[in-house]
Nucleic acid binder design. Structure first.
Lengths: 336, 336
DNA sequence: GTGAAAGCGCTAACAG
DNA sequence: CTGTTAGCGCTTTCAC
């Protein structure tokens, strides 16, 4: 690959001039500029981003970091796509990291990203209190949280109103006459799942339904398998639930599989509401009623926030709370 | 972030020595080494990858590039995960790029990656003849193709036997007595889809079934919508097919949706075989018969190949052809 | 066994 | 308007 120096020699100017025509900064004599541009074209010159990054202090690296739990979770794929699209629009590339909810991996990647001098980092933090992430913010690295928040208020954040999401789902089932409604959720650790559970409880309370601990299953939200097992248990209960609320797309799959295996008819024998409106949700039979989160849009907004912060590091942190929507399809119906 | 220099000062040695203890190269006096290591620990030193990359010529950047059509296609998510896992094992980070099958985007990202001095690039090339990619290989950048091949033989490649995948699917339907079997595939451009179609035709031929052009639908493989429309058309045919083979996971979803909308029973009224064994395939009712491709494993193998090439740039190129498997579930049955 | 010095490709003062 | 110079943080000869 040609370097600045070679272009300079070819165009018979100094490297500074070449650098100038690239960065549009100072005015360069039109003729000179033209000559340099031709040289760049003819040599097929591409600035070396690594050198640029090393030299430039902040906000010019054209690289950003994105740490997610697992790219195989489609909800995160949506976020990633949103991030990439906005990044691409600004000639940014993104380093993608999978943390597997493992704080050590998160830490490792955070170090790598910092060491790569990325302009900023987007992530759903594994812990709501995170020394590492907070340290990062303090040290001036632009960070935006997406999907999950940090307890500390002073961070740009994009989340959805999870309490409302949970409420909407459960309210919908109650409206159909259900009173024994089970929930498949995560053991408390992630703000999002805690909130969805809170929404579930609020809805029950508002309709004078006593929560039944047997219907609240808390497991690993990454595991379709555990949701499957929980659902099996649920269905074997003496008083089984007439409706199930699965709080993410993976758990929904587990619930669905168990229900089908038991030859139950949806929604006649049991109603199901999922979380996340994945492509398969409308293709299956019956189509699945879900709480939709705008993953792609969340990714976009988070990235825009990040760019804003890169440009103005001392702007006041913003919290964007997006609204989940209930999409009613055929997997929910009157309780029999 | 502390630099080499600061560590050196802190440990009262020269930066060279610090560099040495990091890279384990020359022997360093045990005492000195210990002192330096303590300094690094106490200052929480992290080598600056950007500087390392700029300085080092090849194969030490600890960064690799991955260009895929779209991360929202779960098959590619699997590949990405395979790549990341192997990369993580070697302290590598990966830059992820979405090409949307757009050669300009592919080209843009290829330039970016080269300009980032990545150690290597993994991609399913958009075109089977690709000047850009071939140029890259010629210029010495380690490249490995995954999922799709280049016509040029001299590239490391990891693909599946797509002809066989197509054959397996269709043979399975023929065994159930089907003779009017439709295929939803891509307009010819991608080697993988061409081959799946070839497998389809081979199977028909081997069983003396005349291919019917009306049953061969070629569209955009990224579009669930187009598969949906095609399926609708197919079902309205005077002699509609009794079975449908969808050649990727997105198209499968479109077919499923159309079939359900027409209130057809699977497999009683129509059999369906999908391509790609996505998590939802076993959760739906009836569970979907599919041709499974080992996406995750393909990503792993591709990355291993890449690392081998980084270590030995003049090793002979390897072509790994993995086998697809037919997973029989309940979406296929006797023709009525 | 250790240090001094050069330089990767680029940007940013500082002169002219 | 253009060129000279000094590094960014690191690796790598080449001396000592």
């Amino acid at each position: 690959m040609p370097t600045l120096k070679e272009v300079a020699k070819y165009a018979k100017v100094s490297i500074t001039t070449v650098s100038r025509v690239m960065n549009e900064a100072d005015k360069v004599n039109p003729e000179t500029r033209e000559r340099v541009q031709r040289a760049m074209r003819e040599l097929d010159y591409q600035p070396n981003r690594v050198a640029q990054r090393l030299r430039t202090s902040k906000g010019q690296s054209k690289l950003l970091g994105l740490i997610i739990p697992d790219i195989q979770n489609q909800f995160y794929s949506s976020i990633v796509r949103g991030v990439e699209d906005v990044a691409y629009g600004k000639d940014y590339a993104v380093i993608l990291c999978n943390s597997d909810e493992n704080p050590n991996k998160e830490r490792f990647y955070l170090d790598v990203l910092q060491s790569e001098s990325v302009d900023g980092i987007i992530l759903p933090p594994i812990h709501q209190y995170s020394k590492v992430v907070e340290g990062l913010i303090e040290s001036g690295v632009p960070v935006v949280c997406v999907d999950r928040k940090l307890v500390r208020e002073a961070v740009d954040t994009v989340v959805i109103n999870n309490v409302r999401g949970g409420y909407l789902a459960v309210k919908h089932m109650i409206d159909f006459g259900h009173r024994r409604i089970a929930i498949l959720t995560s053991s408390s650790q992630f703000s999002s799942f805690e909130e969805r559970l809170a929404g579930y409880k609020n809805a029950l309370q508002d309709h004078n339904i006593e929560p039944d601990e047997n219907l609240i299953k808390e497991g690993d939200p990454r595991s379709t398998e555990s949701a499957y097992l929980f659902t099996k248990e649920l269905l074997k209960l003496h008083h089984p639930p007439t409706a199930i609320f699965a709080t993410n797309n993976l758990m929904t799959l587990g619930a669905l599989e168990a229900v089908h295996e038991e030859k139950l008819n949806v929604p006649d024998n049991i109603s199901i509401v999922g979380f996340d409106d994945m492509p398969w949700a409308r293709a299956i039979s019956p189509p699945l009623t879900v709480i939709k989160q705008p993953g792609y849009e969340m990714g976009r907004r988070a990235t825009e926030l990040l760019f804003q912060r890169v440009e103005d590091p001392k702007r006041e942190p913003v919290q964007i709370i997006m609204e989940p929507t209930l999409i009613i399809r055929k997997s929910t119906g009157e309780v029999k």
